[in-house]
């Protein structure tokens, strides 16, 4: 039965891909408008040393120590970026570049030197996750979605990402007007009593949470791509912030679904007998969609030099 096979093997990886993409793409809209997209890149890189250190301390790769280590590393990175910016008096892009590459490199060295052969923790995993392994064996078909016993055996990443996505959506919905005003005109926002700097910090914290949760399931490639590509594509489609956020969600879902299917079936259709990394294909698709929008998006003329 095709339904059962799909639900067992493909539904959960696809769902995880969609949830992770959405959780990153939605805050990505605000990062893009604040010219902070690189912070998503930075955070997803520093997650690696964070989880390695967490593993070395706790000796396990259980979710909570990993999350804690990753969040700690994200916090350290944000503070160090601020410090480099302030004391080195250089612009934030350069400060981020310096910090996240060094921390990522440190993580790679640490990983190489420590004994992680017994656990599934390696550089490949860090880059493109283990999406294909998130199968749902206890599923017997679509009906299992309504079966609590079967649901409880779903890979835990699904539930975690669902909670994180709900948090992201709630944050953006509740603080919508203040976020919009603070992003457009910080001085004005402060003058009318919006805690603009606190909101900016909350946005970065939310970015870190989304990055850490998504990283565990899908690796850093997709996290980096989804913070930037759907939002950047959406910006080329509209001049309205609400519409932009909705478009970014559409592009995130399309990239995840199309990416997963192409990774599984495209090589077969071309006559090769292997599949390619689903996470890698999802990120590639999101980039291709951005490329198409650059050529044909209705608001692309915006990016032409203006007089």
């Amino acid at each position: 039965m095709i339904g059962q096979e799909f639900v067992q093997l493909s539904l959960t990886p696809m769902l995880v891909g969609i949830l992770a993409s959405l959780a990153c793409a939605l805050p990505g809209n605000f990062l893009l408008l604040r010219r902070q997209t690189l912070i998503g890149d930075a955070i997803s890189h520093v997650v690696l040393p964070g989880i390695v250190v967490a593993f070395l301390i706790s000796g396990s790769i259980a979710a909570w120590p990993m999350m804690l280590g990753a969040s700690g590393a994200a916090l350290v990175a944000v503070l160090m970026i601020e410090a480099v910016k302030r004391f080195g008096r250089i612009e934030s892009g350069a400060a981020m570049g310096v910090i996240f590459t060094s921390m990522f490199a440190g993580g790679v060295l640490l990983l190489e030197q420590s004994d992680t052969s017994s656990v599934h923790l390696d550089v490949q995993h860090a880059l493109y996750g283990n999406l294909e392994s998130l199968i749902w064996l206890s599923a017997e078909g679509w009906g299992s979605l309504f079966d609590l016993a079967a649901l409880s055996e779903m890979p835990p990443q699904v539930g975690r990402l669902f909670v994180v996505l709900a948090l992201v959506v709630a944050f953006i919905a509740v603080f919508w007007s203040s976020l919009k005003i603070a992003t457009f005109d910080e001085s004005f926002a402060l003058s009318i009593g919006i805690p603009a700097r606190l909101l900016g910090f909350a946005l970065v914290a939310l970015t870190a949470i989304a990055a850490v949760a998504a990283f565990d399931a899908v690796g850093s490639i997709i996290v980096i791509a989804m913070f930037i590509c759907p939002a950047a594509t959406a910006r080329l489609m509209t001049d309205d912030l609400v519409v932009q956020v909705l478009w970014s969600a559409v592009f995130a879902v399309v990239s995840a679904v199309l990416g997963y299917m192409l990774a599984g079936y495209l090589p077969g259709l071309l006559g090769y007998d292997y599949a390619v990394s689903a996470a890698g294909m999802m990120a590639t698709v999101s980039g291709l969609i951005l490329g198409v929008a650059c050529l044909f998006g209705p608001k692309r003329k915006r990016i032409a030099p203006t007089a």
């Binding site: 007007s177 203040s178 919009k180 457009f184 005109d185 919006i194 509209t238 001049d239 309205d240 912030l241």
Partner: peptide, 19 residues
């Protein structure tokens, strides 16, 4: 001091004054 490429309309900016 602001980015005039921000995706909002004129009326939205004025409504910010009523926040």
């Amino acid at each position: 001091s602001v980015d005039w490429d921000f995706p909002v309309r004129v009326i939205d900016v004025v409504l910010m004054g009523l926040y």
